[in-house]
Simulated scan of single mutants.
Amino acid sequence: MEKRIIKAGVPETGGPFNLCVRHGDMLYVSGLPPFEEDYCAQLRAARARGEPPPPFPDLPFERQVRIVMDHLKALVEAAGSNMDCLLKVIVWLKDQRQQEAFDRIYRGYFSSAEALPTRTRMQAGRTPMDCALEVEAIGYVPQPPAATPAA
């Protein structure tokens, strides 16, 4: 089995990692902060010039959650899977008081309560660029049903 890097148009910071790797039927998604392409471009440019990173934009918490979850969904689907095939999710919140707002949005990315993956949620001491959250995941790519032999 070879390792495949999954690209899905999700903005990248130019850091020393890949956002999503598929190995066999397993998926590994790096911690995803709520970075949109404009901010990632500024971050890459600052790194290239050897300058400090730009400040993270002041985005509402709910917007940050949707950015992260949309990016997670895009990566999982680009790998040939879906959100219901996630097995483990780890969530770092900058402020645990936002857990209920996070959970309301998070649940909407899965088809049912039974499809929810295992999850760890913790308060981060510090998140990338002081954003509100970061989410990472492990999942699998479902196998197509086996063809039934003709009778």
Rank of each mutant, 00 (worst) to 15 (best):
Q64T: 02
G9D: 07
R4H: 15
I6N: 08
A74H: 10
S112R: 12
L59R: 11
A150Q: 04
A46V: 04
L27R: 05
I105S: 10
P52S: 03
V65Q: 02
M122T: 01
G14V: 05
L86W: 11
A147H: 02
P34M: 11
V141G: 05
A8W: 13
D103N: 07
F102N: 08
A132F: 11
L32H: 09
G125C: 02
Q123E: 04
R44A: 01
L116M: 15
C20M: 02
N82G: 15
E51Q: 10
R107M: 08
A48I: 03
E2S: 05
C131A: 11
F35Q: 12
S30F: 09
F102H: 10
N82E: 15
M122H: 07
A74L: 14
Q99M: 09
L87K: 12
Y106S: 01
K3R: 12
N18P: 00
P144L: 12
V65K: 01
L75W: 11
Q96P: 04
E2R: 07
K94Q: 05
P34D: 00
G14L: 12
D58N: 08
P57C: 12
S112Q: 07
Q96T: 05
M129W: 11
E77D: 08
E114M: 15
A151K: 11
M83Y: 11
A101W: 01
T120D: 12
L86V: 02
Y39N: 10
V21N: 09
F102Q: 07
F110S: 05
C20D: 01
S111A: 09
V10I: 07
Q99T: 00
N82S: 15
P55K: 08
L59A: 04
E51K: 02
